[in-house]
Amino acid sequence: MKTSDKMGSIKIPYNNNFLDLFISLTLFFGLVGCGQNSDEQVAPMMKPPLQQEVTTSRPPKPVPTLAKVTESTRNTYQWYCAQCHGTKGKGDGINAKLLTVPPRNHTKAEYMETRTDEQLFEAIKFGGLSVGRAPCMPAWEHTLSEDTINSLVQYIRELCQCEAL
């Protein structure tokens, strides 16, 4: 008790208002001042939302914007793809007859509509083997940008006049 009394009698050199201000400023700069995106840092501190809240407040799933087919897309197809797939995409390029597996005919809707845009994208970017198809189709990931590949996918959709089922 005596000790307690002694402790209780210790004189704090700051008043309560000053202490409140100090704690408030420390919390504020600790949470906001260290990162460029304060939301990301504050978020983990927040209470996780209930399932009910998630379903009601989640923003609608963004619809991917379709890449446009431009003159550059057509030129790219003629420059690279036409060697095997032919200038009109019929799978009759100058290499076609010499390959173990014939190049895909991009005008054939019956087959092309069974492939999703993502599968076409992957086949171009990572090569035929990546989508379980022939290795004759090389990977263009270090040659063509993703935007160009996306536009090529749309151009192939133009050639087959089809969409993924």
Binding site: Q83, C84, G93, I94, N95, L98, L99, G127, G128, L129, P135, C136, M137, P138, A139
Partner: peptide, 25 residues
Amino acid sequence: FERTFGCISCHQSLNLAGKVRGGVS
């Protein structure tokens, strides 16, 4: 050469039997 990079699609080479095979672009 043949499967990972697909070189054979555009370049003629020799197969295991010593026969010429491959693309011509």
